[in-house]
Design a protein around this nucleic acid. Structure first.
Length: 365
DNA sequence: AAGACGGGGGT
DNA sequence: ACCCCAGTCTT
């Protein structure tokens, strides 16, 4: 019988002959995080967690998950909730159409399906906000169906382990990785394996500073062998960000009320609240901006507008860099059809974009 | 096939 | 500054 040092056993817990999936499962059993939706694979909980976590770090999304299951214990509760309540709970998480799709799907499941979720990939895929990744996740985790998930973690793990440099943000590369992921799927514990490879990508095979020295897959890893860890995965990407300058006019009403409106359905921050104002594509002089604001809001030509802060408030979106400016005026200008006038205590309950919510907080002081 | 769509955290 | 995150939908 051969004798190993304990340190060596910990460093290489997986013998070479273990297949990729077995190694992932073994690692997952020893290293998985204790996440609230992992108690029991209830479809409502798994679906809710998957929608919340799309393009979102687990650490950021988990508090939202806990608040959602507390507020809406069943899909019927979510379906019955007013949209404003759902949006307010979602405030700050971004990608706000996810919340509307979530609500629409909850109503569909509640009314058309008696609260019972579809139990196959194919049927799950037809739900709003559920694409191939989420359908695969729910089908495998809840129903053991043979569907391989491919998310950002899986792209990273597979591109490194197999040394594949096809761009992960282009359809050909995405098809290639999906096919590879499918071929690696084990015959048992598919849900655990899918969660395992994602967990492995998040905790071990991280984007920056991956933990190669303690990696159980190091020996078979092409990228590690070739010193290409930092280059993989490859992205073709690079869509450039546009600049926008948003100017908001705050009419300081004697009663302490604020003029507010909802943003259009299309574009960023869909139907979230904002103050009346205008969008410019370039920097302008203070005079030009005031002139445009007065014209936009049908104000008297002589009305004075004062900027409420020195520096513009910068805000970064996926494809835009915003600079926000807040102006104040004494004039009670004509109310637009889209606009409402409400007390501060009331509008605080609305769903606001983060930089406007922050500004609102500062207004209270 | 390529863009649009957020906000937070890491380096 | 730039990259990335348990992706999906629209054009």
């Amino acid at each position: 019988m051969e004798v190993f040092h304990l340190a060596e056993l910990k460093k290489t817990p997986t013998p070479k002959f273990m297949k990729f999936a077995a190694c992932i499962l073994h690692w997952y059993d020893q290293n998985k995080r204790d996440l609230p939706w992992r108690q029991d694979p209830i479809p409502y909980h798994i679906w809710l967690s998957e929608i919340l976590m799309q393009q979102t770090r687990i650490e950021q999304g988990t508090p939202y998950y806990l608040r959602f299951v507390e507020a809406f214990p069943t899909v019927h509760d979510l379906a019955a909730a007013p949209e404003e309540k759902v949006m307010k709970l979602w405030q700050g998480l971004g990608y706000y159409n996810r919340a509307r799709n979530l609500h629409a799907t909850a109503r569909y499941i509640s009314r058309e399906c008696g609260g019972v979720f579809p139990d196959s990939y194919k049927d799950l895929l037809s739900l709003k906000g559920v694409g191939s990744y989420t359908a695969s996740a729910i089908a495998s985790i809840c129903f053991g169906e043979a569907r391989a998930v491919v998310d950002g973690n899986v792209y990273r793990v597979l591109s490194r382990y197999y040394g594949i440099d096809s761009p992960i943000d282009r359809p050909p590369g995405q098809r290639e990785f999906q096919a590879l992921a499918n071929s690696l799927l084990p015959k048992t514990r598919r849900g655990d394996y899918n969660q395992g490879i994602m967990e492995f990508g998040a905790m071990q095979c991280r984007p920056k500073n991956p933990r190669c020295s303690t990696c159980p897959l190091q020996e078979g890893c092409q990228a590690h062998r070739q010193g290409r860890i930092v280059e993989l995965p490859v992205k073709a990407g690079k869509t450039k960000v546009k600049k926008e300058y948003l100017h908001f006019a705050l009419a300081l009403d004697p009663k302490g009320e604020f003029r507010v409106q909802q943003r259009p359905v299309k574009g960023y921050w869909p139907r979230l609240y904002e103050f009346p104002g205008l969008k410019l594509d370039r920097e302008e002089s203070s005079e030009r901006i005031q002139e445009s604001l007065r014209k936009e809001l049908n104000m008297e030509p002589a009305t004075e507008l004062r900027q409420l802060h020195e520096q513009p408030i910068k805000h970064q979106l996926s494809h835009r860099v915003l600079q926000l400016f807040f102006w104040s005026t004494e004039e009670v200008y004509e109310m637009g059809v889209e606009q409402r006038q409400e007390a501060l205590s009331k509008i605080e309950g609305f769903a606001w974009p983060v930089p406007l919510a922050e500004f609102l907080q500062r207004m209270k002081f």
